[in-house]
């Protein structure tokens, strides 16, 4: 049983996520392309292979602008 103990934040939305999976997997679950986002944990940029840990708050920054 995996607890949904990770919070992923994108702009004003937040998504609950399981701990124990790598970030790229979480992004796939949320259908967010990894190369359109950067991820910060405690203000530090992290790579997509980082494992999500219990209690993590991951802030996503959308990097694609249009116009």
């Amino acid at each position: 049983m995996s607890e949904e103990s990770v919070t992923i934040i994108l702009k004003d939305k937040s998504f609950p996520m399981h701990a124990g999976i790598p970030l790229h997997k979480a992004l796939r679950i949320l259908d967010l392309p990894a190369n359109a986002h950067l991820a910060l944990r405690d203000g530090q940029l992290i790579t997509e292979d980082e494992m999500l840990r219990k209690g993590d708050r991951i802030e996503l920054v959308a990097v694609i602008s249009g116009g």
Binding site: P33, N35, I64, S65, G66, G67
Partner: peptide, 25 residues
């Protein structure tokens, strides 16, 4: 500025970028 220009929503360019990123994935 993190906010997007309000006119970029639904723009053709954004659409193409999203598709390119899916292929890139």
């Amino acid at each position: 500025i993190h906010e997007e220009c309000p006119y970029s929503t639904g723009s053709k360019q954004l659409f193409f970028k999203q598709d390119l990123n899916r292929w890139e994935e």
